[in-house]
Structure formats: structure tokens, C-alpha cells
Amino acid sequence: MRVESNVIAPAGITLGALGVLAFSFSLPATRLAVADLDPWFVSFGRAVGAGLLAVAYLMFVRAPRPSLAQIRRLLVVALGIVVGFPLFTSLALTTQTSAHGAVVITCLPMCTAVWAVVRAGERPRSGFWLASGVGFLAVLVFVIANGGVSGGLELADVFLLIAVVLCGLGYAEGGALARDLGGARTVCWALVVSLPVTVPVTGFVAATRDFSHVSASAWSGFAYVTVISMFLGFFAWYAGLAAGGVAKVGQVQLAQPVLTLLWSVLVLGEPVGGLTVFAAAAVLTCVIWTQRART
């Protein structure tokens, strides 16, 4: 299904922006969690916690069961957002900072747009790709100038790149599927179909780890990625993708690395120079540019 209108409904952008705001703290929260918790527990345990919330939600709204074809697509969504992105970012952030992760996450809007072409049937024109490329470069220059890059390619960078590719796939497939199921039910069913995998892994890891030393900050980070990053954030995000188009609304993610670094300042007290204002203005300009580019 293609998005034919030149103008995205304001609701699509608003919902997408709320989703990005929720996701922007995911890397700092994950960094807090893996400081004391096993990364496999963080990635799969958050999916179990969010999965239980999803079961409660689906029962409350009496959601009809998805068709077999929709279940197959939900498995693709689950591979990207329930398993792939949480696992590989958790593994990466055991040795890297969230600021460094923000550099690689800059690739996510472009990756989402590519998957939107492959999985969601969208065909952005050249102006869209130009705007996306300029926005990508603007954010990349910003995070590099603020010390987001430290050294060459490491295993953590490979993990982050894999996370971006899988997350882009999950975003695009979920955004397209949300046109039929709705944003909330899409993420909820993706979490539910993942439970046969996430529950055993979480149980095994929990049985082999000692949790007596885990700090309150680690548990708070785990709670955030469980309730917000893995559950509520996707309510707004998938609804926005469905309303406004995967490729276009996906470009709102250009603001995510900037927000992630700002969260690092607020939470960790790291200084950020005046370049933040310029980068924010540049990103906003590119986001508006992508929204005006015809799909």
C-alpha cells in the first residue's frame, strides 16, 4: 500500500515524534541497565515484561487474533524490534557509551527508508533521498563534533550496525502492518509471538545470575526499556508510521541521536557545546524537507 498524498497528516508526525522522544532515552537507559545486569537478561527480560503488559492490553481490548499471514509478518517485526535491536545494543553498550551508540543509530532513518521500499511498497523520490542524506550528515557531524566517536571500528560497532539493520526492518514491517492492525496491536502481538523464545532465555539467564549486587539505577534503566522503549513508545511510533508513511515519518528519527546526547548531559552531566542549537535547527529543517518531498 502506497502513501499517495503529498502532505502527511499532522497526527502522523506528532505520533512519530512522541515515539522518537520515548526511544531517545533507550541507549542511556540500556547503558544504565547493563552496568549491573547481564545484557542477555536486559534484552530478553525487557521483552518478557513488555510481553506480559501486551497480553493484558490485548485481553482488555478483546483484540481479535491476527491471521496466519499477519503472524508471519509479526515474526519479522519481532526479529527486528523485540529480539534484534535490544540484544545487539545491549551487547554493544557493555563496552561502549550511549553517545558512541548514537553515532551509529544515526543510520537508522536511512535504513528504515530502505526497508520501507523493500517491505512497505513505498517509493520516495530523489528529493526525499537528498533531504535524508543531508539530515544524516548533519547529525553525524554533530555527534562526531561532540565526541561521539572514539577510535576505529570495534566489535561494539558491528553489534550496533546489526542492531540498526534489524531495527529498520522491524520499523518498516511494523509500520506497514499497523495499517491493518493499528500501532498498539502490532507491537503487542509482536511481543506475544516472541514469548516462546524470550521467556525460556530470560528464565535460563536469571537462574544463572546473582542479582543481589544490582543497583537501583540499573533496575530503573531496565524498567524504562521494558515499559517505555519496548511497549508504550511503539504505540505512538507505529501509529505514526501507519498514518504518515514509513519512509517519511521514519525521518523524524534524525532527531534521536541529538536527543540521546542531550539525555546524556542531563543524566550523566556531560557538557555539550553551542553546536547543539545549530544541529537541532539543521535536523528540524531536514525533517520538514523530507515531509514536503512527494512520495
Rank of each mutant, 00 (worst) to 15 (best):
T202D: 05
L254Y: 05
V258T: 13
P196N: 03
H213E: 13
F234P: 06
M230T: 13
V201E: 00
M230G: 11
L259I: 13
S217Y: 14
V249K: 02
V214F: 09
A242W: 06
S217N: 13
F211E: 07
A236K: 12
Q251I: 03
A247M: 10
L254A: 07
S229W: 08
L254F: 12
S220C: 06
V258K: 00
A255G: 15
G244I: 02
S217E: 14
Q253P: 07
M230V: 05
Q256E: 14
Y224H: 12
F234H: 15
S212Y: 09
K248W: 05
F231Y: 15
A206F: 11
L241F: 07
G250Q: 07
V193W: 05
Y238Q: 14
S215K: 02
F231W: 15
V193N: 01
H213L: 03
S194V: 06
M230N: 15
V205T: 08
V192K: 01
S229I: 03
A223V: 05
A247Q: 08
V258G: 01
A207P: 06
V225Y: 07
D210L: 07
A223P: 02
V214M: 07
S217V: 12
V199E: 06
V193Y: 00
S194K: 04
G245Y: 06
L259W: 12
G245K: 04
T198R: 04
A223Q: 02
A255W: 08
V246M: 00
A236S: 15
W237H: 14
V193R: 00
V246Q: 11
V227S: 15
V225M: 10
S194G: 05
K248Q: 13
P196S: 07
G245E: 03
F235E: 10
W237Q: 14
V214R: 03
Q253T: 14
S220L: 15
V225K: 05
T208F: 05
G244C: 02
W237F: 15
Q256G: 04
L232P: 10
T202H: 09
P200D: 00
V214A: 05
F234Q: 11
Q256H: 10
G233V: 14
V193G: 01
